[in-house]
Nucleic acid binder design. Structure first.
Lengths: 203, 203
DNA sequence: TCAAATATGTTATCGATGGTAACATTGGTT
DNA sequence: AACCAATGTTACCATCGATAACATATTTGA
């Protein structure tokens, strides 16, 4: 199932240039991700998948780190949209936005574990990349209920930090098989039950 | 600072055999861990560090996975002892064993981040290894306050699961730079404050 | 005791990988 | 039409994990 090079509109046109190699490479890396994991992906395999030579990737990315960073940006954006959708729906349905976000976070982590891991494999990423910084900031805003809008250096409330850590930790433990079998039987519902304890009940 | 091969007692003895190569290799890998990370360690570098040829490692380990598994076992045991010590001290001092364990978990993660990460990089580990299974079970028992002793398939209380996830997630986020600067300024105290919210206050 | 068996080293080599240099082709600009 | 930047190619390198064939030490047991 090798995705052949994207053809130009003009059928007889030369195929020397790919046309959208950058995106094709990112697609190919994402396709490897579930099976190979964030550290196991190969640029050469991605290039071959895109129907292009091994060295071509370096015309679009400085190095492998730049590729992984772009993949992480994609993942961050995908997760943010997933969470924003869930939050909007919950709001208009009069349900808890808090637990909707938590459920969406967990949903994404469990359904796209490799993308989720990639987002946090900082050793593979260029954390100075502006797109990545922006994507991370968007996630942070989402997780903190846009509370920190006043200033960048606002203190994170302990309760928010706790909730953030809990969803993240349970998601991570779940997808890395860090929980014993008893919890793994149906960890999604068990985790949601645990997170429900954090529901901000008007206080 | 290359650690030369361990000498035998008899000075004139042949140096063809190392004597404790297995342990020396694990030491060398651990030494690489902080800088290279769990996925960045090299068996060849470890062998060179131990003063031995590249292929020698495979006389003591089936493959790289077996090496990383042994490192993870060491890390699990180290962390378990750290937590047990903290728990014992808290108990005899009349302090909260719960928060002592949480603090010890966080301590270990923050002071030995690479070892901590290795423990949860399941893609690198052989999870069928008996030593690893045992070490993980010991950690699980510690985290669940030995509550699950009745049976292996006991349900984990939601509160325990929440606390477990929270410490783990906050530790992970902290060492992977997943928290914004505001929380990173002094994340240890901020995290401990967050965890304090979970203190089981007799209820 | 000493010879065979076993354990533990070594060297040579393989295939895959990320990365670079030198060159080729294309398409846009003027 | 001619140039030039963008984007592709081939050839090559060092490093890595892994294996095979061989060398040496240690242990075992007749």
């Amino acid at each position: 199932m090798v995705t052949s090079r994207q053809e130009k509109q003009t059928p007889g046109a030369s195929e020397y240039h790919h046309g959208r190699l950058r995106e094709a490479l990112l697609d190919a890396v994402e396709a490897q991700l579930p099976e190979k994991g964030p550290e196991g992906v190969s640029l050469r395999a991605a290039a071959k998948h895109a129907g292009v030579s091994s060295a071509a990737a370096f015309r679009h990315f400085k190095d492998k780190r730049a590729v992984m960073t772009a993949v992480a940006v994609r993942a961050h954006r995908g997760m943010a949209e997933h969470m924003e959708t869930a939050a909007t729906e919950a709001r208009s349905a009069g349900l808890s936005v808090f637990s909707a976000k938590g459920r969406a976070y967990l949903d994404f982590a469990l359904s796209e574990p490799a993308k989720f891991k990639t987002m946090f494999r900082t050793a593979l990423l260029d954390e100075t990349d502006v797109d990545l910084v922006e994507a991370e900031a968007r996630m942070t805003r989402l997780l903190l209920n846009d509370a920190g809008e006043d200033e960048k250096h606002a203190e994170i409330p302990a309760k928010s930090l706790l909730a953030w850590g809990a969803v993240h930790g349970l998601a991570m433990l779940s997808i890395e098989d860090g929980l014993p079998n008893s919890a793994t039987k149906d960890n999604r519902s068990a985790i949601l039950e645990a997170l429900a304890l954090l529901e901000p009940q008007d206080e």
